[in-house]
């Protein structure tokens, strides 16, 4: 059985809110190391891989593997009934068909309980190959989100070029074209505004900006984002969590 407690419901609420627009029915695999979710978005252009390590919970017990088949939007709806600073407990018996969520306020004089019906979801799993990425960029999550939002005014696609000079985001459409270039830099005051580039060879890939804007909704989860790219492969975009990550594998647009 699973019993997992978070000191603040907001930790789970904001993660579910960040990924809910892309996903539908998915399985959350729970075991002694934590909760893991891997799911393709409806268009199969983005794969979301979420890991919430057991040490991120104030109490965690999962003696036998439990699979929680649910619709992520239903989970988001139930989580909306929790205050951000409520103590949140997830509980599910082995082979149960429901997930019990309880929300307690810190003075423990109000407790809500919701039972979310679980489903059997036969989901296709993709094997994610270990990839040597030619380029790794660590930058501010908010700056990435803002840069992509600006370019989405010009086009539905962005080209990202990474070389030793820096990283360039460019877009071209009927209106015209635009680009933003960032040099590698270290910001001593607030580190998250640094741009750190590790490069084994230059790389350039193009991506759909609508899907990218869904991905950058995770900017609320982490101050920095790690972009990893290599020619002809999906990009890996990672937002680190206190004890885990939200990782996206994003298929590029390819010259036909």
């Amino acid at each position: 059985m699973l019993e997992a407690k978070l000191d603040a419901a907001s930790q789970l609420k904001k993660i579910v809110e960040a990924i809910r627009d892309m996903l539908g029915e998915c399985n959350i695999e729970c075991n002694e190391t934590g909760l893991a979710l891997q799911s393709l978005d409806k268009s199969h252009i983005v794969l979301v891989s979420l890991l919430l390590g057991s040490d991120g919970f104030s109490e965690y017990r999962c003696d036998r593997g439990v699979t929680l088949g649910l619709n992520i939007n239903s989970l988001a709806t139930v989580l909306r009934c929790a205050n951000n600073d409520d103590i949140l407990t997830l509980r599910s018996e082995d082979r149960a068909n429901e997930l019990i969520l309880t929300f307690e306020d810190s003075k423990a004089d109000r407790i809500s309980e919701f039972n979310l019906r679980l489903m059997d979801i036969d989901q296709e799993y993709l094997a994610i190959p270990e990839t040597e990425y030619a380029a790794t960029v660590v930058m501010s999550a908010a700056v990435l989100q803002r840069t992509l939002r600006d370019l989405s005014a010009l086009s539905e696609a962005v080209t990202i070029e990474i070389d030793k000079e820096g990283i360039r985001f460019s877009a071209e459409g009927d209106l015209g074209k635009g680009s933003t270039h960032f040099k590698p830099c270290v910001d001593m005051e607030n580190a998250e505004n640094s741009i750190n580039i590790t490069l084994s060879e230059p790389v350039s890939l193009s991506f759909n900006l609508q899907y990218f804007s869904n991905i950058t909704k995770a900017s609320s989860l982490s101050s920095t984002v790690t972009l990893q790219m290599t020619a002809g492969m999906p990009a890996q975009i990672e937002y680190k969590l206190p004890s885990g990550h939200v990782r996206y594998y994003f298929a590029p647009k390819i010259e036909d």
């Binding site: 252009i45 993709l126 190959p129």
Partner: peptide
């Protein structure tokens, strides 16, 4: 022109 790939073009099913 470019066309949008899907992850099935790169990742194999388990």
């Amino acid at each position: 022109t470019t066309q949008q790939a899907t992850l099935m073009n790169f990742f194999s099913k388990k």
